Amino acid sequence: MSTGEGRDRDSEGRARSARPRDGLGRPLPYGAPGVERQPEGVVRTPEETVAQAQRLLDAGMPFHAHEVFEDAWKSRPADEAALWRGLAQLAVGLTHAARGNAVGGARLLRRGARSVEAAGGTHGMDVPALVRWAGELAHRVERGEAVDAAREAPRLRGGGLE
């Protein structure tokens, strides 16, 4: 549904952009070929979430991985929220860093690292390595280094970069 202002909205008035997006989630012109969006509201097991997010991260699509983590954040038990929210923030931090937004990228990488580190459960993820990865990448981004999302993708299980 679209309002008179040209913004895509769902039946309850929430923004739902129908514009195609590139691999880093940037909107493209209507009609341009884009990367298929992740379906919203998918309930996955933690293992499925980590596997799907890792595939997207490895493909250089951290924005799309963030959407997978966001589904887990919203559908998993409340005591796991900090973990999934933190992972979503790490993915968005990588997205911003790859887009050249050093301030936003570094801020979200550090915020996500704090959330992941404070979370209780890990579902087999190497939390210390993820926290280390986020801190190192945030530092490099602040120094002005360019970031390639696929090359910088963290290993969610097995520690740090591949």
Rank of each mutant, 00 (worst) to 15 (best):
M1F: 12
R9M: 12
R9P: 02
D10M: 06
G13E: 10
R14F: 14
A15C: 08
R16G: 05
S17D: 12
A18N: 08
P20V: 04
R21G: 06
R21P: 02
D22R: 09
G23C: 10
L24M: 09
Y30A: 12
G31I: 09
P33Y: 08
G34E: 03
V35D: 07
E36T: 09
Q38K: 11
P39L: 08
E40Y: 07
E40P: 15
V43G: 13
V43M: 14
T45R: 07
P46I: 02
P46E: 05
E47V: 06
T49K: 02
V50C: 01
A51W: 02
A51H: 04
Q52M: 14
Q54M: 03
M61S: 14
M61T: 04
H64F: 11
H66T: 03
V68G: 01
F69C: 02
A72V: 02
W73R: 13
W73Q: 07
K74T: 13
S75P: 13
P77S: 13
P77F: 09
P77M: 08
A78E: 15
A78H: 14
E80R: 10
A82L: 15
G86S: 07
G86P: 01
A88T: 03
L90Y: 00
L94A: 04
T95A: 09
A102W: 01
G104L: 08
G105A: 10
A106Q: 04
R107P: 08
L109A: 04
L109Y: 03
R110E: 15
R114D: 15
R114M: 11
E117G: 11
A118H: 14
A119G: 05
G121T: 11
H123N: 10
H123V: 03
G124Q: 12
D126E: 15
V127I: 13
A129P: 03
V131C: 07
W133L: 01
A138W: 01
R143Y: 05
G144P: 02
V147H: 05
R151F: 07
E152S: 06
R155L: 12
G158P: 08
E162G: 13
